[in-house]
C-alpha cells in the first residue's frame, strides 16, 4: 500500500482555488500527477452527479475547492 497514490479529481473555482493552483505552478511547486483539475466558474456549479460520475469513472477521491 506504500505505493498507493490515490487518483483525485479536483473541482476548482476559477476565481480562487484555481488561481491558487496557478500561483503554486508559477512558484514551481508540484502536486502529484494523479490529481486532475477541473475548472469551474464557481464550485456552486458542482452537482451530486459530477461527483458520482467521477467515482464511477474510478477516482478515489473528489476534492472540491472554492
Amino acid at each position: 500500500m506504500n505505493d498507493y497514490e490515490p487518483k483525485i479529481v479536483a473541482f476548482c473555482c476559477e476565481y480562487c482555488a484555481y488561481t491558487a493552483a496557478d500561483t503554486a505552478g508559477s512558484a514551481r511547486m508540484e502536486y502529484p500527477s494523479t490529481v486532475r483539475i477541473i475548472h469551474l466558474l464557481s464550485t456552486g456549479k458542482v452537482d451530486t452527479l459530477h461527483l458520482l460520475r467521477a467515482f464511477e469513472k474510478g477516482v478515489d477521491a473528489a476534492f472540491v475547492a472554492g
Binding site: 452537482d47 451530486t48 452527479l49 458520482l52 460520475r53 467515482f55 464511477e56
Partner: peptide
Amino acid sequence: EKEVGILASELRM
C-alpha cells in the same frame, strides 16, 4: 431526471 442520474450512477457502481 437528476434523481434518475443519481440512481443510475449508484447502480452502475
